[in-house]
Design a protein around this nucleic acid. Structure first.
Lengths: 126, 126
DNA sequence: CTTATTGCAAACCTTTTGCAACCTC
DNA sequence: GAGGTTGCAAAAGGTTTGCAATAAG
C-alpha cells in the first residue's frame, strides 16, 4: 500500500457518478501532485482484479470505474456525455426504472449483456 | 451505393457471430481486394446511423457489428476471446438463459445498461 | 540488498480525419 | 466539371508497457 494507491482508492470511494481514469488522475493530483496517469491506470486495474472496483464501459469514450461492488445494481449511461449512474433493478426483471432512478434521463434502449467464457476458451485454458 | 458499400453490407449479413471492423475488412477484401479499412469503418458507421446495423461493444477489444436489427435480442460476450452471440430474452425479464442460448458459455455475470440522454444534455441541445 | 513501485516516454490498438486522386453524372 | 467516395497516411483517443530511478522493507 503506497500513497498513490491510497489516494486512488480514496478518490474513487463514495462517488455517485462514476469517474474515468483521467478524472481519477485529476482528482488524485489535487492530493498528490506528482502522481502519474500510468500509476492511476495500474492501480485501477489492480483494484478491478482484486474485485474492489467495477469497470463500466460506456460504448463510447473511456471506461468508468465504479466503487460500489457490494450492492448488486445496474447502470444508466448518457449517450451524449457518457456519464454513468447507478440504477437499481426494479420490477419486470429489472428492466423498468422508477422515476427516482431515471434521474431525468430519457431512456432510449436497454441492453442486456451476459458475460462468461465460451466453450472454446474454457477448453483451451481449463 | 458503391461496390464497397455493397460488399460490406453483404459480408455482415447473415452472420451469427458478430464481426469486428477488422474481420469485416478481411472478408470484404476476399471479394474486393482494394477495399480499405477506412472505407469499412465509414460504411459501418453509415449503416449504424441508418439503423441497419447495431454496434455492440464488448468491454475489451474492438466493437462488433450486428446485422440483426429486426428481432429484439440481447448478447452474450466471451470474456476471454470477445466473441459475441445473440441470445433471446427468456423468463424472469430476460435474465435467465436456456441451454440452447447459453451455447456452452459459462455465464459469470449479467449487465443491464440503460441508455439515453441525461437531463443536462437534453437541455443543452434540445 | 532485494524487491516492488513509481514516472516518464514510447508503444499499442482502435477509430477517425485530411486530402489528393478518382469515379459518376 | 461538380459532388460525393475512395485509399492512403497521419492523427487522435485511450490504455499499456519498458525501463531507469526510487522508495520500502
Amino acid at each position: 500500500v503506497t500513497p498513490q494507491r491510497r489516494v486512488v482508492a480514496e478518490v474513487l470511494d463514495g462517488e455517485h457518478v462514476h469517474l474515468s481514469a483521467e478524472s481519477v488522475h485529476l482528482r488524485s493530483q489535487q492530493r498528490l501532485p506528482e502522481i502519474s496517469l500510468a500509476t492511476v491506470y495500474n492501480t485501477l486495474n489492480e483494484l478491478v482484479a482484486m474485485g474492489e472496483v467495477l469497470e463500466v464501459s460506456t460504448g463510447t469514450g473511456p471506461k468508468r470505474y465504479d466503487p460500489n461492488v457490494r450492492e448488486h445494481h445496474h447502470h444508466i449511461v448518457c449517450t451524449t456525455c457518457g456519464d454513468v449512474r447507478d440504477v437499481h433493478p426494479g420490477g419486470a426483471g429489472g428492466l423498468q426504472l422508477d422515476d427516482a432512478d431515471r434521474a431525468g434521463f430519457d431512456v432510449e434502449r436497454v441492453d442486456i449483456v451476459f458475460r462468461g467464457r465460451c466453450g472454446t476458451c474454457r477448453a483451451r485454458t481449463g
